[in-house]
């Protein structure tokens, strides 16, 4: 009996380890021989290699092609290529300024190092990573708040923002379910749907995954923490009916985000919803005491409030952090 239990636990660990491993591998899709690629100045891209490359190969412009990831058919023109004396780093200068907010794809043909062909590589070049991640997080949370700028998830937003306590409970549950389902759908999209060319089924699959994660959280929470489960009550099931939770996986799939970026977007969307619910519930608690004309009592005034919040959130629009 004991051995069966340990075997089962080991199997569980194996599955978890595999999952984590594939997530980590999925993050670093970079080719091994290229150690780093980053923007350098307004027009430059610098590439660091793991070993010295041949000068003749490195200086040949035909070996490099650069494009914005979203426009694979528009190649950016290269003005000059310089090689550092230690032959470990190449700087490509382009003819025009680079739009550094966009991810660029850099394809490098047949790298030659010490006379040996190291194969070709395709790398993504992005701006400073931590800042980029933070800008995704803050972007989803505040600048492009899903409720106030995209008007998604309004049914749950108006339904659960009457009291502060339920608003916060809903926000936290939502964030948990959001992160879980977004990570699962990212994984499934990258490793199952895309390789099998089934990406046209993404909506169906994502809906299934959302209900799966809600059901799983429901089942586990009921046993593990009955008090919290009682506190969440009906809101846990209501999460299924939220538009944000299906919008985020679709955005992830569209933008080809990697694991960490997906995590940041999901977290940002969840926390943004929490902020929106908290703000709205604090105001609605006060509105209860105010003298509202009978026509506007209840939901109508709440919609007007939502509009005012959206107006004020417009102040953030177009901001860029890094």
């Amino acid at each position: 009996m004991l051995t069966v239990a340990t075997a089962r636990r080991n199997a569980l660990y194996c599955v978890a380890a595999f999952f984590m491993l594939s997530l980590v591998l999925g993050c670093g899709k970079e080719y091994r021989f290229i150690k780093a690629a980053s923007f350098k100045g307004p027009r430059g891209i610098s590439i660091t290699f793991a070993g010295p490359v041949d000068e003749k190969w490195a200086k040949d412009q035909a070996n490099y092609s650069i494009n914005e990831k979203t426009d694979p058919d528009i190649y950016l023109r290269i003005a000059a290529i310089s090689l550092r004396p230690d032959r470990l780093s190449v700087t490509i200068t382009l003819e025009e300024d680079i739009n550094q907010k966009a991810t660029h794809t850099l394809a490098i043909k047949g790298i030659v190092s010490e006379g040996r062909n190291m194969g070709s590589a395709i790398v993504d070049v992005k701006k400073f990573y931590l800042g980029y991640l933070l800008s995704i997080l803050m972007g989803a949370m505040i600048i492009n708040n899903f409720v106030f700028t995209k008007y998604l998830g309004l049914c749950v937003f108006f339904g659960t923002s009457q009291k502060k306590s339920t608003a916060i409970g809903m926000g936290i549950t939502f964030t948990i379910v959001m992160v879980a389902s977004a990570m699962m759908s990212w994984f499934l999209y990258q490793f199952v749907l895309k390789p099998f060319r089934l990406d046209f089924l993404q909506i169906v699959v994502f809906i299934g995954l959302v209900s799966l994660s809600v059901q799983a959280v429901d089942t586990i929470l009921r046993k593990v923490n009955p008090v919290l489960f009682k506190a969440f009550g009906v809101y846990l099931v209501l999460v299924i009916a939220n538009c944000i939770i299906i919008a985020v996986p679709l955005i992830l799939a569209d933008n080809e985000y990697n694991a960490i970026e997906s995590l940041m977007l999901a977290l940002g969307a969840g926390l943004g919803f929490l902020i929106a619910l908290f703000l709205m519930s604090s105001v609605r608690e006060r509105i209860e005491l105010a003298d509202v004309p009978p026509t506007f009592k209840g939901l109508p005034i709440a919609f007007i409030l939502g509009g005012l919040f959206a107006l004020s959130f417009m102040g953030f629009s177009g901001m860029s952090l890094f």
Binding site: L212, Q215, A216, T219, I220, K223
Partner: peptide, 15 residues
Amino acid sequence: FFGVGLALAAHKFAV
């Protein structure tokens, strides 16, 4: 896969 997983979870965490 997920169906069996959910069923097992429901069995394990049965209240």
